[in-house]
Simulated assay, not measured.
Amino acid sequence: MPDKATGKSAGDAGGSGLDRVREELTKYLLTKANKVVSTAGDKMSKVAQGELPGELPKMGGKLLQGESPVKAVGGQVLKGVKDKAVEKTKELFGGGGKAGSKKVTNIIEVLDVGLPLRRVYDHWTEFEEFSSFMKGVVEASRSDDDDLESQWRLKVGPSKRSVKAEVLEQVPDERVVWKSSGETTTHGAVSFHELAPSLTRIVVVVEYTPGGFLEKTGSIWRVQGRRLRLDLKHFQRYVTLGAEEVPEGWRGEIREGELVRSHEDALADEESDEETDGNDEYDEYDEEGEYEEEGEEGEEDYNSEEER
């Protein structure tokens, strides 16, 4: 029956009421969806460590197109996380970020070698031989006109790098401090310590700045540290079992990046010291001989006096 006041039937009134409820429910759901989108966007932005500017309108558009709120929010949040990951990866692996340019790997290794201190040090200074037993050294050579510089061709994982090394300090039988420049940079020191007459400890400390994508990836897994550790063991095996000749070594001295005593001068000083030590022993023998002769003369004089 139609309503006398409105002229509408009860069915029409019921339909109008249902439409009103549906409209209010839709508004409520849209409000809740917007709140969910806003909250989820804020939280995921914090996880991604960055903002997602302009993404909320995109999510709202997808909602209006009939896409579920979860799918709309999830898609945009994942995109934000992906973009942030790409940005961080570029910074780490040389994409122009400051973090990538300052990434440094610190390496410390200790090795004991069953040989006298001087022999171990002299073997170390003959680094031109390293390529014959170390897998990480492809080639090494000392500069012809400068005792402070050397050229190295290194292998770390699948990559090879050419570097120029400069000695900052070198004291025979004590320590060597260097820095290198080129595709890969290092700043390191190796020191030698006598534990016993035939036992020497080597301590190596290196700051390694990788160059290139592969090396920076390898630094995450400490490939460089493992490579150095293995090469030190190769050095230990070589000097203990493989080296047949006693090395001459490089006996020069470097202080504050300046050559203060050449290899030739150091050898000459050592020979002079040995000769001085030999002469001192001879002089002591002569003095004893003279003392014995004086004693014999004294006995002859005493016997002469008795005969008289």
Results as ranks from 00 to 15, higher is better:
Val167Tyr: 05
Asp280Asn: 03
Glu292Thr: 09
Ala13Met: 14
Ala189His: 02
Ile254Glu: 07
Glu194Gly: 09
Glu275His: 11
Gly80Lys: 07
Gly289Trp: 13
Glu288Thr: 01
Pro69Asn: 07
Ile220Gln: 04
Met59Leu: 12
Glu67Met: 12
Glu67Arg: 13
Gly54Leu: 03
Lys82Ala: 12
Gly96Ser: 07
Val36Phe: 15
Glu207Lys: 15
Gly114Gln: 13
Gly66Thr: 03
Glu294Asn: 07
Asp280Gly: 00
Ala85Leu: 15
Ser159Phe: 06
Ile107Thr: 06
Ile202Gln: 04
Lys4Ile: 13
Glu299His: 08
Leu232Arg: 07
Ser16Thr: 09
Asn279Gln: 10
Met44Cys: 12
Tyr28Asp: 09
Lys32Phe: 08
Ser150Thr: 02
Ala165Asp: 04
Ser181Pro: 00
Glu207Gln: 15
Val37Gly: 03
Arg255Ser: 14
Leu232Pro: 05
Gly252Cys: 04
Val223Gln: 11
Glu24Cys: 03
Ser143Leu: 11
Pro2Cys: 06
Asp146Thr: 06
Leu29Phe: 11
Glu292Tyr: 14
Val81Gln: 10
Lys62Trp: 08
Glu256Lys: 12
Glu183Gln: 14
Lys58Tyr: 07
Thr184Asp: 09
Lys103Ile: 00
Met44Arg: 08
Thr240Pro: 08
Asn279Phe: 13
Glu284Arg: 14
Val204Ala: 09
Ala140Cys: 00
Gly212Lys: 00
Arg251Val: 07
Met1Asn: 10
Val70Ser: 11
Val70Thr: 06
Lys233Asp: 09
Thr217Gln: 11
Ala85Cys: 10
Lys233Arg: 12
Tyr282Trp: 00
Tyr121His: 01
Glu207Arg: 15
Lys79Phe: 05
Thr200Leu: 02
Val47Tyr: 04
Thr31Val: 12
Tyr285Ala: 12
Ile202Lys: 08
Val203Ile: 12
Lys84Tyr: 02
Phe127Met: 10
Val137Gln: 06
Leu111Gln: 11
Arg201Ile: 02
Leu18Lys: 10
Val47Leu: 14
Glu270Met: 14
Glu256Asn: 14
Lys27Asp: 02
Ser16Tyr: 07
Thr209Ala: 13
Asp283Ala: 09
Lys98Arg: 05
Arg222Ile: 01
Gly157Arg: 04
Gly249Lys: 09
Glu264Ala: 15
Gly94Glu: 04
Thr6Glu: 02
Gly15Asn: 11
Tyr282Glu: 07
Lys160Tyr: 07
Thr39His: 05
Leu56Asp: 03
Glu296Arg: 08
Glu207Val: 00
Asp42Ile: 10
Asp273Phe: 08
Ile108Cys: 08
Gly212Glu: 03
Arg161Met: 04
Ser219Pro: 06
Gly11Leu: 14
Lys58Asn: 05
His123Ala: 15
Arg222Lys: 15
Leu56Gln: 10
Gln65Glu: 14
Trp250Val: 09
Asp146Gly: 05
Val205Asp: 03
Lys88Tyr: 13
Thr184Phe: 06
Glu149Arg: 15
Ser262Ala: 05
Phe192Tyr: 01
Gly7Trp: 02
Leu232Ala: 01
Gly182Trp: 02
Glu67Gly: 05
Asn279Ala: 11
Gly289Lys: 13
Val190Met: 12
Asn303Thr: 03
Asp144Arg: 15
Leu148Trp: 03
Glu264Ser: 11
